[in-house]
C-alpha cells in the first residue's frame, strides 16, 4: 500500500477533472486494484458535492446596502465612473512607502536642488494620522491632499472636498505633466524598454508634483539620480508573487528590496486585486514594487 502515496495528488486532481490523460491511465490502473484509493476518491467527490451546499445565504438587504453606499460616492460631474482612475488607495501603504524610502536610506537620495522641498515633505507631520485613518476607511476616504497644499498629510482640507478626489486623476491625465521616461535609466546594463533616451540629468518634476498632489503620491518611487515618477508603487509584505518579474532589483537594506516592473505588470497586479498600491503617473511606463526577503 506504500505505493498509494504517489497517487494522492493524482486522485485529488482526478476528482477535479484536471488530471492529464496520460496520468489518468496510470491512476485508473491503480484504482482498479486498490479499494482504499477508490474510497478516497469517493470521499473527495462526496466533499465536492456537499461543499456547494454548505454555502450560507447572505443576509437580506446586503446588495441594497452596497448600492446605497455606491450612490453616496462622489461622482464626476461629467457623468459616470468611466474615466475615474484607480483611487482605491491604501493611504497606510502610501505613507509606508514614503516612510520606507526616506527612512531606509535617506543618505542615498541626492535631492540636489530640490533638497529643501523634499525634506519638508519627509517631515510632513500628519503622516501617521493619515495612515491610521486610511487603514480603517473602506475606500478612497477623500484623503487625497488638496491641490497645492504641498503636504502629504493635508487631509483635513481635502476631506470634505469632493472635487479633490479628482485632482488626483487630473494629475495623471494632465497634458502638461512631463512624464518621466527614465524608469529604467539608472540600470546601465538594462536598456529602457521604451527606448527612451536618457541624458542622466535629474528630471525636474518637483514643480509638477507640487501642483498635482496625486502625482506627488508617486514620489515614493523617487530614484537616486532622477526624480522618476512611476506608474504606481506597490508594497508587498513578504516575497513577490512568482509572476511578478522586473529589472533593477535594489537592496534597500534591512531585508527590503525594490524592483522596477513595467506598467503592464502593475496593471496586471491591480487587475488581480492587489490593493496596496499608490498610483503615480498613469503615463509612466514603469512601476516600482517594494517587497521583503528574509
Amino acid at each position: 500500500m506504500a505505493d498509494c502515496k504517489k497517487y494522492m495528488d493524482m486522485i485529488s486532481c482526478y476528482a477535479d477533472g484536471e488530471l492529464p490523460e496520460q496520468e489518468q491511465k496510470l491512476l485508473l490502473a491503480h484504482l482498479d486494484g486498490c479499494a482504499s484509493c477508490r474510497a478516497l476518491l469517493s470521499a473527495y467527490r462526496s466533499i465536492a458535492e456537499a461543499a456547494e451546499e454548505t454555502l450560507v445565504q447572505v443576509p437580506d438587504g446586503f446588495a441594497a446596502g452596497v448600492m446605497e453606499k455606491i450612490r453616496k460616492l462622489p461622482r464626476r460631474r461629467s457623468g459616470g465612473w468611466k474615466a475615474v482612475r484607480p483611487v482605491i488607495i491604501s493611504f497606510a501603504a502610501a505613507a509606508a512607502c514614503l516612510a520606507l524610502v526616506f527612512t531606509v536610506s535617506p543618505q542615498r537620495f541626492d535631492f540636489g536642488r530640490n533638497k529643501a522641498k523634499m525634506s519638508a515633505r519627509v517631515e510632513a507631520p500628519d503622516m501617521a494620522d493619515t495612515a491610521e485613518r486610511g487603514t480603517d476607511s473602506v475606500l478612497m476616504d477623500s484623503a487625497v491632499p488638496e491641490a497645492g497644499s504641498g503636504e502629504f498629510g493635508g487631509t483635513e482640507a481635502a476631506k470634505s472636498d469632493e472635487e479633490s478626489l479628482f485632482l488626483y486623476e487630473a494629475a495623471g491625465a494632465s497634458a502638461d505633466v512631463e512624464t518621466p521616461q527614465t524608469g529604467m535609466a539608472t540600470a546601465t546594463d538594462s536598456p529602457a524598454p521604451n527606448g527612451a533616451a536618457t541624458d542622466g540629468q535629474p528630471v525636474d518634476s518637483t514643480s509638477q508634483v507640487t501642483r498635482h498632489p496625486g502625482v506627488k503620491l508617486g514620489i515614493a518611487g523617487v530614484d537616486e539620480n532622477t526624480l522618476v515618477i512611476y506608474y504606481a508603487v506597490f508594497t508587498f509584505e513578504g516575497a513577490l508573487p512568482d509572476h511578478v518579474t522586473g529589472v533593477e532589483k535594489t537592496d534597500r537594506g534591512g531585508g527590503l528590496y525594490s524592483l522596477v516592473v513595467t506598467a503592464d505588470v502593475a496593471r496586471e497586479l491591480i487587475n488581480e486585486g492587489y490593493t496596496n498600491y499608490v498610483i503615480g503617473n498613469e503615463d509612466a511606463e514603469t512601476a516600482l514594487v517594494y517587497y521583503t526577503e528574509d
Binding site: V66, K69, I70, L73, W81, K82, A83, V84, R85, P86, V87, I88, V138, L139, M140, R267, I270, N271, T275
Partner: peptide, 10 residues
C-alpha cells in the same frame, strides 16, 4: 463590491 465598482475600469 465598492472597490469593484470604483475600479471597474481595471
Amino acid at each position: 463590491f465598492i472597490k469593484a465598482y470604483t475600479g471597474l475600469h481595471n
